[in-house]
């Protein structure tokens, strides 16, 4: 389904948009249910399940024990047998608790069964640093998921994208991770009232530009746009592309941009070394090597866990200034 034209757009927060998306899915899919820690009575620690248990009942919105392996397993078993689970993994860092269910069951069951099983499972989870939540509550682990054939993953960076991507994820017959960002929760943006779906395969050109390409995802999209605005004075007219979905990845849109701009930078909040940006850089050089005027740059976090102290964390998390510095270094300006 194509993106809707925003006829009745209102301003919603990121949290409210997530909430509206889950509500939409629970309404349109009788076999959908939501399950996660503290999502029923409390509405979730970040509030995006607020009111849903009261509205749909405790047999559609479940408070689970603190048992992440159980939660994902619930989704695998129920998803394979006719339900459409929407699971909440409170923090992405907790994937460690349930990685076998994710990597060896959820991702592979369909393939191992020769295509005989569908796993229409949506996993909502919260990533991102910047709130002084230290090493185990701040990570961006999208690369873990991107490396798993059989799972899709998207990272909405605006309220509009959150609603549209969650609806797509829940309609998809594959496991889809929707990675949310905790620093974007209060962000406001226009969100159409009606139901719409953003395809899980199409990048978004957030800011058109002529002579530089910045590919950024999650909260880094906003930092990239801010960087692009600063770079204007230096004669750099950067196009900012938000892939929105990392798996499948819209390589064509990125490559097309680089063929026009001849220079590229990949930006993610995750640890730079071994991050998913390396894959994108590799794709670009394979498909557009002759068009490149400079090495492909990358901006990401240092090779360390996320530090607690705000004095360290503020230098740890990539931002617009780090992107500008990276572009300047790359271009020698």
């Amino acid at each position: 389904m194509a993106e809707a034209v925003a006829t009745k757009a209102r301003t919603l927060t990121y949290v409210a948009a997530i909430n509206e998306a889950v509500r939409t899915v629970l309404k349109e899919q009788p076999n959908a249910f939501a399950a996660g820690e503290d999502i029923g009575g409390a509405g979730g620690v970040y509030g995006y399940f607020h009111g849903l248990q009261a509205e749909f009942g405790a047999d559609r919105v479940y408070d689970t024990p603190i048992s992440e392996k159980g939660i994902i397993g619930l989704g695998v078993g129920a998803g394979a047998t006719g339900c459409r689970p929407i699971l909440d993994l409170m923090f992405m860092d907790f994937m460690g608790e349930c990685m076998d269910e994710i990597a060896n069951q959820l991702a592979k069951m369909r393939y191992m069964f020769g295509g005989a099983a569908n796993l229409p499972v949506t996993v909502l989870t919260m990533a991102g640093a910047g709130a002084s939540l230290a090493a185990q509550h701040s990570q961006s682990l999208e690369a873990w998921v991107c490396h798993l054939p059989g799972v899709k993953i998207c990272m909405p960076c605006t309220p509009y994208d959150a609603k549209g991507l969650i609806i797509s994820a829940a309609r998809d017959d594959n496991p889809v991770f929707v990675v949310l960002n905790k620093m974007s929760l209060a962000m406001k943006g226009e969100v159409p009232e009606e139901t719409y779906a953003i395809p899980l395969s199409k990048a978004n050109i957030v800011r058109p530009g002529s002579n530089y390409t910045i590919v950024a995802w999650g909260r880094m999209v906003h930092e990239a746009v801010a960087a692009a605005n600063k770079l204007k004075d230096l004669g750099v007219d950067a196009e900012v592309i938000d892939p929105r979905t990392l798996q499948p990845f819209d390589t064509a849109t990125v490559v097309q941009s680089v063929k026009k701009t001849h220079r590229a930078m990949i930006v993610h909040e995750a640890v730079r070394f071994g991050g998913f940006g390396g894959e994108i850089a590799s794709q670009i050089q394979e498909l557009a090597f002759d068009y490149l005027d400079a090495p492909i740059g990358r901006v990401g976090a240092p090779f360390s866990p996320v530090p607690f102290s705000p004095a360290l964390e503020k230098h740890y998390v990539p931002n617009a200034d780090a992107i500008v510095a990276g572009v300047k270094a790359q271009l020698g300006i």
Partner: peptide, 27 residues
């Protein structure tokens, strides 16, 4: 105790045999 790297959720002290607060429930 942790040079500011751990904070409340990871406060620890090996000399006292305190192997850390933990951000992971069941850690």
């Amino acid at each position: 105790y942790c040079k500011g790297k751990g904070g409340s959720m990871h406060i620890s002290n090996m000399k006292l045999g305190m192997l850390g607060a933990n951000g992971i429930v069941g850690g």
